[in-house]
Design a protein around this nucleic acid. Structure first.
Length: 718
DNA sequence: CCCGTCGTTATTTTT
DNA sequence: TAACGACGGG
């Protein structure tokens, strides 16, 4: 394709963004505004028109999928784009650390620990912690790393107020160091530290990269921001251009360390920034965009932009009030079935919800009605036990200091090597090869025999690499050998027969996926990196079949569907009960993301009653529904009285629908205390609406109806 | 070492 | 409700 052609399909703002020639560029790209087209065209433009060496271009994204799409589309425009570095932040980190392993204090055979492994490591480093405490600590350690805080930082209080945290974190780091491996956070944090502390490395990098682009910048964390600054050489005014693309209105990963402030403050952190807004939306009808805009304009902390639909006005979105979640599911099913008869494919539809648990009702209903569906995101292939077992063998063979992998596989199948023996061997190895330590370690008779078997298997597998007759083999042959020779196949085959699982088949799928890699140490590490850094295994069968998509709102980012139903629009479910202030704004952005996924049809459903955690809850419509604006939606179903009366955007006690429902004399029933009557109702000192209930079995209890609606309900007088 | 039972506990999760 | 971890008996 010719340059003139790709430039001619761009609108003015897109064109400006592509040809912008200054040092720093912030592209505020609204939903559906063609940002991938802009980035890919810019890469092609730089290479073909500005003679920029593709090797000097680095483009980072957050997902493998986005990286792949970006590369493919750029290559279509300009074949030399295949030499540009287009990868995820974390895979760039892994690449960097293998290259500068020495400077980072690592051996280049490190592998990456996932969140589960982190928890195990935290427990081993801090044996006094319960599993739950360890899992909290692991989460906090991840967050600390996202914010670039080390165990000796005096700002750890920003992560948690637990005073033991610094010690727990330090112990964890010490043990991690001993294994020679890294965790996800290290993939960003360590490259940053290497660059910061090594002028030589920095110089090399600055010579190499002249253009750096970051996609979805609103979801970058502090560590990624700091790494970007180092890569671009902002402090020493290196000759590097930085272009970030993002949408502050779509920042939804704060809980994982994403920092919206990165995009909000970009202009003051990078020199000579030009800001370009992409506000033409090529996805949704203007009626849908009106809803989106009405909602998101309630947020204060934003750069601000207004989307304009390139396509027509479309249909007015529909808000549906339903009695309960079973009716919600059957309403969706009806809609889908009716239109399917008119040849609307199932795959046009996406059902969006706030929490994974909400998918269950839809699954039951759809199974019953034989509506094909696929649940996105719940398939965690690489977190399955049998897969982790095989991967642990691979990790252990790559790095014999990996105690987490060792512990996972040494006694599986059972070889009589219990926890105590494992602890002894690991601590005796003190950071050197666990396999070598184990070989000569004296153990009880039973454990010693088991260990001999284990070592023999490990040796046999290791020989696979060195054996010259395997030098042209694929890695899949090696993975297959692991599955067969370690006894994992028999072990899991037995499981399959008992509980009807498909573990052996899953392992086979893993074997198949290794066919693309050579049977060498590099191939092995490469394979593990790819798995660790891309947990989504695309299932081809899912791609081709016509099915409704069931998906959490978070998982929809970057996707689009002709017809979308956003379900569970109830206060407490979405937004969640405990969200206020900045967190409420993030929930609102999540709603915005959901709305802007829809191309033509958009529905919202809200239930009057929802069973949650085994209790019947009387629900109130989500406050977000008021924000849609009366003129922007068509309403179906019985509109709750509270929906009319509540002032727009109000969540205070004044005019709060909750306050109206409870009055003195009203009979109530409480799940734990039984029948009772309200004896007092009014505002507390804190301005909360409080009721006092006298129960039949004696005793008076005070309740905040706002929080107690789960257990406390109005007596049915019929 | 496996299996049943009891008790606890419920977001979102690109890498 | 349901799912998962902890614990104790066979």
């Amino acid at each position: 394709m010719q340059v003139e052609q790709w430039l001619s399909v761009l609108n003015q703002a897109q064109h400006d963004a592509v040809v912008h020639d200054g040092k720093s560029l912030l592209i505020l790209a609204g939903a559906g505004s063609g940002k991938t087209r802009v980035i890919t065209t810019k890469i092609a433009y730089l290479i073909s028109q500005k003679q920029v060496d593709p090797f000097s271009i680095l483009a980072v994204t957050f997902t493998k999928k986005a990286a792949k799409e970006m590369q493919e589309r750029a290559v279509l425009l300009e074949p030399r784009a295949q030499y540009a570095q287009i990868r995820t932040f974390h895979s760039f980190g892994a690449y960097f650390l293998r290259k500068y392993a020495f400077e980072a204090g690592l051996a280049s055979n490190f592998t990456v620990y996932d969140d589960d492994d982190m928890v195990t490591l935290v427990t081993k480093a801090n044996p006094s912690l319960t599993r739950q405490q360890a899992s909290h600590a692991a989460h906090f350690i991840s967050l600390a790393k996202d914010y670039c805080l080390l165990p000796d930082s005096d700002r750890l209080y920003e992560i948690t107020d637990d005073e033991r945290f610094a010690d727990i974190y330090a112990n964890y780091q010490a043990l991690l160091k001993q294994t020679g491996n890294v965790d996800f956070g290290d993939l960003i944090l360590l490259p940053y530290l290497v660059l910061k502390n090594n002028p030589e490395v920095r110089k090399e990098i600055h010579l190499r990269y002249h253009v750096i682009m970051v996609d979805e910048y609103q979801d970058s964390n502090v560590a990624q921001f700091l790494l970007l600054q180092q890569l671009a050489g902002v402090a020493e005014n290196a000759d590097c251009r930085v272009c970030v693309v993002g949408d502050d209105d779509q920042s939804i990963y704060k809980f994982r360390g994403a920092e919206v402030q990165n995009i909000l403050q970009f202009q003051s952190q990078f020199p000579e920034t030009k800001l370009i807004r992409l506000e033409t939306n090529y996805r949704s009808s203007s009626q849908i965009l009106a809803c989106a805009d009405a909602v998101v304009s309630n947020n204060k902390d934003r750069l601000g932009k207004t989307l304009v639909a390139a396509h027509g006005e479309g249909k007015k979105p529909t808000l549906v009030f339903l009695p309960n979640q079973d009716d919600e599911a059957s309403f969706c099913a009806d809609l889908i079935e009716q239109l399917h008869e008119k040849k609307v494919p199932y795959s046009d539809w996406a059902i969006l919800y706030r929490t994974n648990a909400q998918s269950l009702t839809f699954e039951t209903e759809f199974l019953h009605r034989k509506i094909p569906y696929k649940v996105v995101g719940s398939l965690k292939f690489y977190e399955r036990e049998e897969i982790k077992d095989v991967l642990a063998w691979l990790a252990f063979l790559a790095n014999p200091r990996d105690q987490i992998a060792f512990r996972r596989i040494v006694n599986k199948p059972a070889r009589g090597i219990g926890n105590t023996s494992q602890d002894k061997i690991v601590s005796a190895s003190a950071g050197s090869s666990i396999l070598e330590t184990a070989r000569s370690f004296k153990l009880s008779k039973k454990a010693a025999a088991g260990m001999q078997t284990f070592c023999a298997v490990a040796d046999e597998l290791n020989q696979f690499f060195t054996d010259p007759k395997n030098k042209d083999e694929k890695l899949s042959a090696y993975v297959q050998a692991i599955v067969q020779k370690t006894g994992l196949e028999e072990l899991h085959k037995a499981d399959d027969e008992i509980s009807g699982t498909s573990r052996v088949a899953n392992m086979q799928e893993l074997i198949n996926s290794a066919v693309l890699y050579p049977c060498t140490t590099e191939g092995l590490l490469d394979f593990l990196d790819h798995i660790e850094l891309d947990r989504t295994l695309e299932n081809e069968a899912d791609e081709i079949t016509d099915a409704v998509t069931l998906i959490t709102l978070h998982n929809t980012k970057g996707l689009e569907f002709p017809r979308v139903i956003i379900t569970g629009m109830e206060s407490g479910v979405f937004p969640r009960e405990d969200k206020t202030g900045a967190e409420l704004e993030e929930e609102r952005r999540l709603f915005y993301v959901g709305i802007t996924r829809a191309k033509n049809d958009l529905y919202f459903t809200s239930c009057a009653v929802r069973r949650l955690y085994g209790r019947t809850n009387y629900m109130f419509p989500s406050p977000f529904l008021h924000e849609l604006g009366d003129d922007n939606v068509r309403i179906l179903g019985q509109k709750p009285a509270s929906f009319e009366s509540a002032p727009e955007g109000s969540r205070g006690t004044e005019g709060n629908p909750l306050a109206k429902k409870w009055h003195v004399g009203l009979g109530v029933y409480h799940d734990d205390y039984g029948h009772g009557q309200i004896v007092k109702a009014g505002l507390s000192d804190e301005g909360e609406y409080v009721i006092s209930v006298s129960f039949e079995n004696g005793g008076i209890k005070r309740f905040l109806p706002k929080y107690q609606s789960a257990a406390l309900m109005v007596e049915q007088n019929d």
